[in-house]
Design a protein around this nucleic acid. Structure first.
Length: 923
RNA sequence: GCCUCCGUAGCUCAGGGGUAGAGCGCUCCCUUGGUAAGGGCGAGGUCAUGAGUUCAAAUCUCAUCGGAGGCUCCA
């Protein structure tokens, strides 16, 4: 009698043994190739959810595979522990952020252990510890010394709900991405990181194996455009107005200018008569949130300033307007308006009755295009007209210098000193100060108007614990005198750092979390950097992933990697380019969605009044089990609002109001039931507590074991896509592991073994190795497991047929268990041990694929007539063209199709990588 | 509006110029001393639609329809 598979016992046992034997400790070893596998660290929000499992366990499987293939693998884990939820817990539940955060970390660490992942916990890093944020502060100081961090005044996104400023990246559709509340624009003095200095370098993705979509998103976010800068002057010549345009070839078509309402010059140039109108417009604009300003198809509004500018290219006098369709945050905050060739300017001109002048004659149009004929702006190719000396230049769809007309105009602007070639970016500098408590302090002080950095030896500036969390809407630090008041004249910065700063360098802290003399140990960095494979969610495409790239480049430029580069050279590794990018390979996992949930099937009886039934009795029954003669409303509950059920009765929605004293019977829920316990139908959607479709990984592990959960997550989804949760499918992986367990426990068979059958199983094993290798390489975990299931089926069939001898069984099991180890580490270890092999399966070498062993000997030759398969003939795998064609032409199918005539053609297609050879006979 | 990716069995997904595949689910049969289970047999697909290229298209090209994600007054 064989022993039953009890996952829980063996999982806990091995997790302890692995810990005790420091199996997953990774140490620098220059004699072995390194592999730094990194998966995004969690925010300690309280409980690990299934999304963490989905993100981490496949990454773990891949890291384990690399390790078995001979790499020295670093696979660390930590916590991104600063952030708003902790502060909100402090306010709403009166628990200190430290306590709340640490309690969550303790809990999540245990949950992470239950995954059976090969995390090296001796390298754990937690961003909210002074040991960690000392170096966040230190980096800030370094950046400040090198003019990468600066204090500046800018129009910032202010979130009323969070009472803090936010980075552009944290604002989506004019709303704060956390709370969904609109943000307003405010002029504030804040700390910035000069990420725009790196814009061009960040656009270069050479040698980076990142998803195309992420590269495209970052490219769009950076938003590089090419064009020209030109300076207009006010009529009196006193005030220069700089503009940026991507269409300098339309400069002669500028019939007015528009400044953003927030533009500095507005106040200086507005005429006496227009002062009130302009002030009113500015006020109205300032009141509006970004959301309102972004509403599409909005009528373009604006006000004339009363001032005129002179167009430098033709000395023409044109009016200067202000309008909110011009953004102070883009370009120079001022534009030349060319209504004939820019749709926005066109709409504005039509709305305000401003002149329109055509300066590009469309290609292929015979008669001159007139402004009256325009129904929309023309932005296609053509020839420059009404443009003095530039007339006749050909303008194409090409951008920048590649457009002949633009090229010529830029040259002319530069020769005449009226303007110059210019590149512009949508990307703005990274605003990193936050008016919140739970973040790393900014190591800066103020004395009078001067900024005084905190001395290195005084780092870290500690976050005080004894603060008052009364929800005043301001950071507790601004009330904490012992913190901000250094002495009578010196005041500390009370803003804290954006938590994205902490996560921009955590991959470095893992290298040496204990290091006290530097952010990271140079020797460790020399060996492990850069990260070889980074996995995580695509939602960080333009935030974390852009910031961390910027961070690496900035650290490189200020010399933080110099010692590591030196250590590399000492060990014979070329540091050239090693620190340009933080992560070589990036892959994003998809999202596990809440599964579809069937609503309860109910029988409702009561009185029908109008279109509604007033139910006295509602009974939940088995799906579709309607008793004969039942004359009430029955069907699935499609929806429920309060006590009104929407029951889907054969495709028609019936409304049932459940009376307060109605009898409700739900067999699965004992005792008296109420209307709130009736389940309604849910479609596939995100998991959320409010929808009641959250999956708890702890419960799953309890029921099925960690190995089954791991395998289910890897098998049932395309990892890079994600998909809906369907717990029924967990039976697949469960049955697979169960079968393997039983095969192993049954021991070596007492059969002589049939050489052909043994050879066949061995061949299948090697074919399986190839598929697993490719699957893991490509992050196609599902294919890697499906192939192992197939192999298990083949092995099982052979064992039943008693064609496998003890020696072959042992040899095949030794391979199969090692193949299993990355996916289901506990059961693999247990089987390995029980078969009497040496601890640990995870330090064994990965089975090597042997092409000879994988090769088939006999294959089916497919005979096709006009491309349609008609017959197969068993032949040797290495059949030659002539012989194959001969056999095919002699086949029954060919004879019938030819009917004695000669074939037009006979095409031989040799079988390659697993496919059968074919002969296509054209008749 | 623009960009990217994707439409293959009931579900989740492989494959990818040359016989349409896996797991789950489903049918039927067997087992009832592995039993809140196990085993066996089987059914099921115009590979979204339409055209083109080819001896041969699910696969390549183009168009259309449908889905997912991102950007969006970017001058």
């Amino acid at each position: 009698m064989t022993e039953t598979y009890h996952p829980h016992q063996i999982e806990v046992k091995w997790q302890k043994r692995w810990d005790d034997s420091r199996l997953y400790r990774s140490e620098v070893d220059w004699n072995r190739p390194k592999h730094y596998a990194l998966t995004m660290l969690p925010y300690p929000s309280g409980d690990l959810h299934i999304g963490h499992w989905f993100a981490m366990t496949p990454s773990d499987a891949r890291a384990r595979w690399m390790r078995m293939r001979g790499y020295n693998v670093l696979f660390p884990m930590g916590f991104d522990a600063f952030g708003l939820p902790a502060e909100q817990a402090a306010i709403s539940r009166n628990i200190h952020p430290w306590k709340w955060t640490y309690a969550n970390i303790e809990r999540m660490r245990d949950q992470l252990r239950s995954m059976g992942a090969m995390f090296d916990w001796e390298r754990e890093a937690i961003s909210c510890t002074p040991e960690y944020y000392k170096w966040s502060e230190w980096f800030f100081k370094k950046f400040h010394e090198h003019d990468i961090a600066y204090r500046g005044s800018a129009l910032v996104n202010w979130s009323e709900s969070l009472q803090t400023v936010l980075a552009n990246e944290q604002v989506i559709d004019g709303k704060d991405e956390r709370t969904g509340q609109p943000v307003v624009h405010k002029m504030m003095e804040q700390w910035f990181f000069a990420i725009t200095k790196y814009a061009d370098e960040l656009l270069d993705f050479t040698d980076m194996d990142w998803p195309e979509s992420i590269k495209i998103m970052q490219t769009n976010w950076i938003g590089r455009s090419e064009g020209a800068r030109a300076v207009f002057h006010t009529e009196a010549g006193r005030h220069p107005i700089e503009i940026y345009t991507t269409r300098p070839d339309t400069l002669w078509g500028a019939t007015f200018m528009v400044l953003a309402p927030e533009h500095d010059l507005v106040e200086l140039i507005t005429s006496h008569e227009q002062r009130d109108a302009v002030a009113a417009y500015i006020e109205q604009t300032a009141l509006g949130t970004e959301v309102e300003r972004m509403v599409e198809d909005r009528e373009k509004t604006g006000v004339f300033t009363g001032a005129y500018a002179v167009n430098p290219v033709n000395d023409e006098k044109i009016p200067i307007w202000i309008a909110d369709y011009v953004m102070i945050t883009y370009g120079t905050g001022a534009i030349m308006a060319v209504p004939a060739h820019d749709q926005r300017d066109f709409e504005f001109a039509r709305a305000q009755n401003l002149p329109i002048r055509v300066v590009i004659q469309p290609e292929g149009m015979d008669e001159p295009l007139t402004s009256e004929a325009l129904t929309e702006a023309y932005n296609g190719p053509g020839v420059m007209v009404n443009s003095d000396a530039m007339n006749g230049s050909v303008s194409t769809y090409a951008k920048g210098r590649k457009n002949p007309a633009i090229n010529r105009v830029i040259d002319w602007l530069e020769e005449t000193g009226k303007g110059e070639e210019a590149v512009n970016y949508r990307l703005r500098d990274w605003l990193i100060s936050r008016q919140r408590y739970w973040g790393s302090p900014i190591p800066m002080m103020f004395e009078g108007g001067a900024v005084v950095p905190v001395a290195d030896e005084d780092l870290p500036v500690l976050l005080p614990e004894d603060v008052d969390f009364a929800p005043t809407g301001r950071s507790p630090l601004t009330y904490h005198e012992p913190f901000y008041k250094v002495n009578e004249t010196l005041r500390r910065e009370t803003d804290t750092l954006d938590t994205f700063m902490c996560s921009s360098w955590y991959q470095l802290r893992y290298l040496s979390p204990e290091c006290d003399s530097a952010p990271f140990d140079a020797e460790e960095a020399a060996y492990w950097l850069p990260v070889d494979v980074y996995t995580g969610g695509a939602e960080h495409a333009v935030m974390h992933l852009l910031y961390t790239r910027f961070f690496s480049k900035a650290l490189r430029d200020i010399g933080v990697y110099d010692a590591a580069a030196e250590a590399m050279r000492r060990n014979g590794r070329d540091p050239e380019g090693a620190f340009d990018e933080p992560m070589n390979v990036l892959r994003n996992q998809g999202q596990v969605l809440g599964g579809e949930r069937q609503g309860d099937f109910v029988l409702c009886s009561g009185r029908v009044i109008g279109e509604k039934m007033l139910a006295q009795r509602v009974e939940v029954v088995d799906w579709n089990q309607v008793p004969a003669g039942f004359d009430g409303v029955f069907g699935e509950i499609a929806h429920r609002t309060e006590d009104v059920l929407h029951v889907n009765m054969a495709g028609v929605t019936q409304f049932v109001q459940v009376l307060p004293d109605a009898e409700i019977i739900i067999p699965d829920i004992p005792g008296a039931n109420n209307v709130n316990q009736l389940r309604h139908h849910l479609d596939i959607q995100r998991m959320s507590k409010s929808k009641g479709n959250v999956v708890n990984p702890d419960e799953l592990v309890e029921t099925y074991g960690a190995d089954v959960v791991r395998c289910y997550l890897m098998f049932n989804f395309d990892w890079q896509k994600g998909g809906p949760w369907n717990e029924n499918n967990i039976k697949g992986p469960q049955g697979w592991l169960q079968d393997l367990w039983e095969i192993a426990m049954a021991g070596a068979p007492d059969a002589p073994g049939d050489p052909a059958a043994e050879r066949d199983v061995e061949r299948k094993l090697h074919q399986t190795i190839a598929v697993i290798d490719r699957g893991l390489e490509d992050f196609s975990f599902n294919t890697a497991i499906a192939e192992q299931m197939k192999f298990k089926n083949a092995l099982k069939a052979a064992l039943r047929a008693e064609t496998i001898g003890a020696d072959m069984w042992r040899s095949v099991m030794r391979g199969a268990v090692r193949l299993l180890a990355p996916f289901a580490p506990h059961i693999a270890e247990e089987i390995w041990a029980r078969l009497g092999w040496e601890y640990s399966v995870h330090t064994q070498t990965w089975p090597a694929y042997d092409a000879d062993k994988a090769r088939e000997e006999m294959v089916d030759l497919v005979v096709m007539i006009n491309g349609k398969p008609r017959e197969t003939i068993t032949v040797a795998v290495d059949i030659e063209r002539e012989r194959a064609q001969e056999l095919a032409l002699g086949s029954g199918a060919a004879q019938r199709a030819l009917g004695g005539k000669a074939p037009k053609r006979a095409i031989f297609i040799p079988g390659r990588n697993g496919s059968d050879p074919k002969v296509n006979i054209v008749v």
